[in-house]
Amino acid sequence: MITNEFWLDRWKTGRIGFHQEGVNPKLIEFWPILPKGSSVLVPLCGKSNDMIWLAEQGYQVTGVELSSLAVIQFLGDNDLSYDTHQQGELKIHTVNGLPLRIVEGDYFLFTESEFDACYDRAAMIAMPDSRRAEYVTHTLGRMSSTASLLLISLQYDGDTQGPPFSVEEESITALWGNKIQRIASENLAQTTPLYKEQGHNVFEESVWRIQA
Results as ranks from 00 to 15, higher is better:
Tyr119Glu: 03
Pro163Tyr: 07
Asn187Pro: 09
Ala189Pro: 01
Leu154Ile: 11
Pro128Trp: 03
Ser145Asn: 12
Leu140Trp: 03
Ser166Met: 00
Leu149Val: 14
Ile180Asp: 05
Pro128Met: 09
Leu140His: 08
Thr146Gly: 09
Thr146Ser: 14
Tyr156Gly: 10
Thr192Trp: 10
Trp176Cys: 04
Met143Glu: 03
Val167Pro: 04
Ser153Arg: 06
Thr139Ile: 15
Glu134Gly: 12
Pro163Trp: 05
Ser166Glu: 00
Glu186Ala: 09
Ser148Ile: 06
Asn178Leu: 06
Asp120Asn: 08
Ala189Trp: 00
Ile183Ser: 08
Ser171Pro: 07
Ser130Pro: 02
Lys179Cys: 04
Glu134Tyr: 10
Tyr119Asn: 02
Asn187Val: 07
His138Tyr: 03
Gln181Ser: 14
Asp129His: 13
Glu169Ile: 08
Asp157Val: 08
Thr139Asp: 09
Arg142Ala: 15
Leu188Glu: 09
Ser130Asn: 13
Thr137His: 13
Leu150Asn: 01
Phe165Met: 02
Ala122Asp: 07
Ala184Glu: 11
Gln155Met: 10
Val136Asp: 03
Pro128Ala: 02
Asp129Ile: 11
Pro164Cys: 12
Thr139Met: 15
Leu151Gln: 10
Ala126Gly: 13
Glu169Pro: 10
Thr192Tyr: 07
Asn178Lys: 11
Ser166Asp: 01
Leu140Gly: 06
Met143Asp: 04
Gln181Glu: 15
Ser153Phe: 02
Gly141Val: 06
